[in-house]
């Protein structure tokens, strides 16, 4: 079944996205990784729904896709419009993880 193969491929990519989230180096790399991870979760759930014979789970995937987008935008707004207060360095700087 190719659905299984595709699931494995998506899981492998999730692992790679997570490696990027762990490595950084900037906070934007991590946001990118989290966003990518979210879309891969959507694909995973669609695929899981198919090989467990429960495609109704697609409603969840639908909601995940939108929430992931809203979350990413919210986080970026947060970084950009500086509500990070006066404490600590700006997150755009390279940090040592």
């Amino acid at each position: 079944m190719m659905v299984v193969g595709a699931s494995i491929a998506v899981l492998v990519t999730m692992a790679m996205a997570m490696a990027r989230a762990l490595l950084g180096p900037t906070v934007y790399d991590r946001v990118l990784a989290v966003n990518m991870f979210g879309t891969k979760t959507v694909l995973t759930i669609a695929l899981i729904g198919f090989f467990t014979g429960r495609p109704e789970f697609l409603d969840l995937a639908l909601a995940y896709g939108l929430l992931n987008f809203i979350g990413t935008i919210a986080v970026l707004k947060f970084f950009q419009f500086g509500s990070l207060g006066a404490s600590g360095p700006h997150p755009g700087e390279t940090e040592s993880g």
Partner: peptide, 14 residues
């Protein structure tokens, strides 16, 4: 999302 990320990264002096 990609555009927002790029813009935020530029804004954050990357």
């Amino acid at each position: 999302a990609t555009h927002a990320l790029a813009k935020a990264a530029l804004h954050g002096k990357v």
